[in-house]
Design a protein around this nucleic acid. Sequence first.
DNA 1: TATTGTTATACTCTATAACTATA
DNA 2: TATAGTTATAGAGTATAACAATA
Lengths: 164, 164
Amino acid sequence: MTGTRSGKTRAQPLRSMAPTRRTARPAVVLDTLNGHLGYFIRRVQVWIFQDFIRALAQIDISPAQFSVLVVISANSGLSQAELAATLGIERARLARLLHQLQGRGLIQRLESSDDGRRHALQLTSQGRTLLTRAKTLAARHERQLIERLGVERHSMLLQALRDF
Amino acid sequence: MTGTRSGKTRAQPLRSMAPTRRTARPAVVLDTLNGHLGYFIRRVQVWIFQDFIRALAQIDISPAQFSVLVVISANSGLSQAELAATLGIERARLARLLHQLQGRGLIQRLESSDDGRRHALQLTSQGRTLLTRAKTLAARHERQLIERLGVERHSMLLQALRDF
DNA sequence: TATTGTTATACTCTATAACTATA
DNA sequence: TATAGTTATAGAGTATAACAATA
């Protein structure tokens, strides 16, 4: 097997996520995982989401809920199908997600006048208030992420992934 | 055994993942999501995993199963706790994951001589054969990813995310 | 017939807790 | 007491299918 033992590329990724090791065993080798973007992107995505959840824990808003509130707010009257397509969420899952948000009094579903099938989505005034707070907390989370990555690396990643 | 998890995922840029719109409504606005790395990293991670699953569908190996097989192969005799810590998988989940792989005859759990609690993990010869095939298919998946991203952007992402 | 939104099902993943056996 | 591994449970998330109302 091709363990990357020589040289400088012996990556020990995400050290902070693994518990401290105190054994005498040599560091575990990731072998060909080192060449797979999917492996590292998954690890970092999980880390970022956990940090986001912590950052917004006081208002109990998940990453998915945040993205839904932001897009409804910026596109008032959007239908569920449009919202689902925009965020890549299944229509079925979005229905339950919106049901929760409606139960918390954060959104309204108005019947569309020109198409009886559609629900025109809007934030309630309570939803607008909460979203303002959520954006503040999310911005703080992002600032810490920028501190950790460095400004240049953060914006490089943002651009590369946005253009994917 | 569960069947293949096929997905009809779109092999298109995220920007064009929204369905074609026939109305006069302007394009849906992402607002502050545009500044959040977590949003885009999640979208890309999901896309890459779906592509990986398609690429290895013929041998029914998921991303998590692949990472487990690779790391066991490169670190023979590893314990479950070490493997779990390396990959960031919960011990409880790893136990079930290994149970499946053992049921498929891909791995062995030998009792450690010096510590009766530990299981020394190894691939079976069948597991080694399958892993060779899996690595070939995964490498093909990665090459297509490189084609899509461009070599420089791929290695930039790999390094930035590995050093996270 | 196709689309919008809904409900239901199944499976995966994450996060715990509780348990055993070993140390 | 602490650790390694297991089992169980609950809650998200994902992927389908089927359905009613509407177009």
